[in-house]
């Protein structure tokens, strides 16, 4: 999509807004319903598991707090990357894009560790309703993070090849919108799943 940007930014639009950015906000709105439905499912089935392990026996708050912190920091790196690209500082831009992606990878590594630890503790996908709702909700979020990391790395490679500049700032901005949205979803999940047991 990198190449569309140039054209898009120079197009006249009736609302004076970038079309891709508008489509992306609509997409994020749509995602709210996706996660809303998943979170509803989690909450509706809360406490209806027939067998353990139950949430309070297995969720590791200190560890997940670190993951949350990691994702918040990646959001910070993302805005810094965007600001750098917008002012044409591609050196900084490249750096912060890479940092964002790496922080995303750290989060995914943490989630991988958490999942395998839970499986080891006896909580599989089909063990009980808590397991099913937990894995599907956090797994969907993890899939979003994975896509985000791939996207960020693609941008970083583009930047390394000198094909990303202030003219494509909109592409970076949209990537950022996606990344921050994934972050706010985690903010909700952290509270609803981990802290409110």
């Amino acid at each position: 999509m990198a190449h569309d940007t140039h054209a898009a930014t120079h197009h006249h639009t009736s609302m004076g807004l970038d079309s891709r950015k508008m489509a992306f906000w609509a997409f994020i709105g749509s995602e709210c319903l996706l996660f809303g439905s998943l979170i509803s499912t989690y909450l509706v089935y809360k406490g209806r598991s027939l067998v353990g392990p139950y949430p309070h026996e297995i969720l590791n708050i200190p560890f997940t707090s670190f993951s949350t912190f990691d994702l918040l920091m990646s959001s910070l790196a993302m805005v810094l990357a965007l600001a750098a690209v917008q002012r044409g500082d591609m050196k900084q831009g490249k750096l912060w894009l890479l940092v964002t992606a790496l922080l995303g990878l750290v989060f995914l590594g943490g989630q991988f560790w958490e999942f395998s630890h839970f499986v080891h503790e006896g909580l599989g996908l089909t063990t009980n309703l808590f397991g099913s709702t937990f894995y599907v909700l956090t797994g969907t979020h993890g899939a979003h993070v994975t896509i985000g990391v791939i996207w960020l790395l693609t941008l970083w490679v583009q930047a390394l090849r000198g094909k990303l500049g202030p003219a494509n700032a909109m592409t970076v901005e949209i990537t950022g919108l996606y990344w921050h949205f994934v972050d706010v979803v985690w903010i909700v999940i952290f509270t609803v799943v981990y802290l409110i047991q």
Binding site: Y45, R48, S49, L50, L125, T126, L129, S132
Partner: peptide
């Protein structure tokens, strides 16, 4: 997930509704 992976989201036998 219910059909392919054996979860019980909609199956009363596993607490689902």
């Amino acid at each position: 997930f219910d059909r392919f992976f054996g979860t019980h989201f909609f199956l009363p036998s596993g607490g689902g509704d």
